[in-house]
Amino acid sequence: MDGIPRLGHGFRFQWEPAQNCHVLLYPEGMIKLNQSAGEILVRCDGQRDVAAIIANLEAAFSTRDLRPDVETFIAMAVDKRWLRLESATA
């Protein structure tokens, strides 16, 4: 999977103390994210590409082989328009 994931139009990502989790806010709604989804989205900063996000996660959690999970999540998030995937050269 190539490209730089950015937050979709109209979505806001933030930590919610009252929910004790990261959330995605959008017009008139909220999606509560589990820890893994939150850790991925917090790295979707519009700078890192997918490979860099995976590398950063693997380093942060001292683990390997996160690519399938991360790519599955990003594909789902793009499908739901939480994220846009922009080509690195754009």
């Binding site: 009252a18 909220m30 999606i31 509560k32 589990n34 820890q35 893994s36 989804a37 999970d69």
Partner: peptide, 14 residues
């Protein structure tokens, strides 16, 4: 890490 998932907002609380 758990498999990345989302869950719906709970019915009660704030």
């Amino acid at each position: 890490m758990n498999a990345p998932l989302t869950h719906p907002a709970p019915g009660i609380g704030p």
